[in-house]
Design a protein around this nucleic acid. Structure first.
Lengths: 131, 131
DNA sequence: TTGACATGACGAAAGAATTCGCTACATTGA
DNA sequence: TCAATGTAGCGAATTCTTTCGTCATGTCAA
């Protein structure tokens, strides 16, 4: 009686992935320090290392064992992970309608003129590509 | 030593919420049957009732106890819940950039001409509203 | 009325996520 | 060299999520 292993990275795993995406690679100690500073975590170094080992098992991170303090890297790109999570959210909460999500994101956020122009341009391109 | 209670509804909770959002209200038995049919769950009635009781404790659903088979309703609207989850995803996976999410959603989904037109119109309105 | 069946409350069980303590090993500076 | 420090592995503890079995109660037809 249990729940199937979740497909999406968990909250803490994402915090670590964010760090790795930004810096490219990092040692356990660096990750731990950044978690404490940026995310204001108050967990021990031991916990960070354990999380990394779990993520290694799950295939979320890769590890360079030749480097003296081992260096961890994200196994999947941020874009790839984002796409997966986005699709999942659309399925789970938006009844499969990506457009409904887009509209809500647009309406509930203040965008700069530049951003809006960029989006409009993209929409126009997509429109042009259609028969 | 554990994890703090998650703020977002879980997978199964969302499946139930989706049903309630669509139908407005439903009895435990109706919810159970729909979970089986629509979501292809193979869990027992007992499990469904338990989930509802957990969700009641969390404040995710409300219950009309005067009705003979009690009627459950979602405590928060779908829009409200979507907005919360969307904001959360943007924070967690998109470094806080809603526009980056919008662009990715646009580029990775096939939209109909009507949907694109609707979005373009919305963007133009937002642009017009800016000085 | 009473037996058959449904409802829902409760607790237990089991897996998943998260945490930490302890230990073994490597590195480094005096 | 060797003591001090850092790195990483392992297991255990704890909480959350999800599941089911069981029981008390309610409903309804014969």
């Amino acid at each position: 009686m249990a729940r199937p292993a979740s497909l999406q990275p968990t909250e803490v795993e994402l915090q670590i992935l964010r760090i790795l995406w930004q810096r490219g690679g990092a040692t356990a100690r660096e990750i731990h320090n950044l978690l404490a500073e940026v995310e204001e975590r108050e967990t021990t170094y031991s916990t960070t290392v354990k999380m990394l080992s779990v993520m290694l098992d799950k295939g979320l991170v890769k590890r360079d064992e030749t480097a003296s303090p081992q260096v961890y890297r994200a196994a999947a790109s941020q874009k790839h992970t984002q796409r997966k999570m986005l699709r999942d959210l659309i399925e789970k909460a938006y009844d499969g309608s990506a457009m409904s999500l887009v509209m809500q994101a647009l309406s509930s956020t203040r965008a700069t003129a530049e951003e809006l122009a960029e989006i409009r341009q993209m929409v126009e391109e997509l429109e042009g590509r259609q028969p």
